[in-house]
C-alpha cells in the first residue's frame, strides 16, 4: 500500500512546518489530492493514523479536498473539466491537452495549537 509512503511524506512535511513555527500540537491537516492520483482517501487516513501515533500530529484531523481533473487545450486554449477520463478537447477535438488540475498531492495548510 503506497498510501504508507504518502502518509510518511505528509508527516515529514507537517513535522517540519510545525517545528519551524514553534508549534506544539497539530489539530488539523488540510490536503489537496487530485482526482487523477492513485490515492484512496480511506486507505490514506488509515495509514496516516498508524504513522502519526505518538507524534505531535497524533490527534490531527485529516481534511481531504479532492481536486477535479481539468485540462487546457494547447490548440484552442479552452479549459475543460474532464469527464470519464476523456482528455481530448471537447471543442476542437485536439489531443494536445495538458492537465492543469487533478494531479495534486499537496499539504495545503495546518492548524496548530
Amino acid at each position: 500500500m503506497h498510501e504508507m509512503a504518502i502518509a510518511q511524506g505528509i508527516l515529514e512535511i507537517v513535522a517540519d512546518a510545525a517545528a519551524n513555527n514553534g508549534a506544539g500540537k497539530v489539530s488539523r491537516i488540510k490536503l489537496q489530492i487530485g482526482q487523477l492520483t492513485a490515492i484512496e482517501p480511506d486507505a490514506l487516513r488509515f495509514c496516516f493514523a498508524a504513522m502519526a501515533a505518538g507524534t505531535m500530529a497524533e490527534r490531527a484531523e485529516l481534511e481531504i479536498e479532492i481536486m477535479p481533473l481539468i485540462c487546457r487545450c494547447q490548440d484552442c486554449s479552452r479549459s475543460f473539466a474532464v469527464e470519464a477520463f476523456r482528455l481530448v478537447c471537447p471543442d476542437c477535438g485536439s489531443h494536445r491537452t495538458e492537465i492543469t488540475s487533478g494531479r495534486e498531492l499537496r499539504v495545503e495548510h495546518l492548524e496548530v495549537e
Binding site: I6, G9, I13, A17, H109, E111
Partner: peptide, 14 residues
Amino acid sequence: MEIRVMANILEQND
C-alpha cells in the same frame, strides 16, 4: 494558528 504550507507530498522522491 494556521500555517500555510503548499508542499508537494512527493517532493523528496521527485
